[in-house]
Amino acid sequence: MNKYLPLVAALVLSSSTVAAQSFEDVFNAQRALHGNGHAFTFEGEQYTTDHPEELEAAAPANATNAKALIASAKAMHAEVKAVGYDWTLTKGILKNASKALKAGDFQKAMNLAAQAKYHARMGVAQYHNSKQSWLNMVPE
C-alpha cells in the first residue's frame, strides 16, 4: 500500500493544482515549455503561446506597421516610467527599433518594438502586482 501513497498523493495534488490554475498560469507553463507559436487548450478553447506583442510583430513588415508598433511601444514605455517601474533594457531596445526603422529593416524594427512593449507592459503589471502583494513579504 505504502508504495502507492506517493502516486495517490501526486494524483490528488496534480488534480487540485490543475483545478486551481488560472489562464495566466497555464499560459506561462506552456510558454516556458514550448516557447512562442505553440497551440494549447484552456477550458475547451484553443490558444497560442504568443504574447500580444508578438502577434503585433507578425503583421506585414512595412514602414506603416513598424511606425505604429514603435509608437505604441513608446506609449507603453511612458506609462511604465510614470509609475517608476521601468526596466533598464527597454529604452535601448526602443532606440534600436527606431534605428532599424530608419535603416529600412522593418521586421527587425517590429520585433524590437514588440520586445520593448512587452517589457513595458510587464513593468506596469509588476507595479500593480507589487501594490497587491508586497505585504506578504513583511515578517511578523
Partner: peptide, 22 residues
C-alpha cells in the same frame, strides 16, 4: 518607504527584501 522596500522591481522581479531580508 515600507512598501518600496518590499515591492518587487526590475526585470529580475526582485525587492530590496529578497536580498536584504530573505
Amino acid at each position: 518607504g515600507k512598501a518600496q522596500f518590499y515591492s518587487r522591481r526590475g526585470q529580475l522581479n526582485m525587492s530590496c527584501a529578497n536580498c536584504h531580508l530573505q
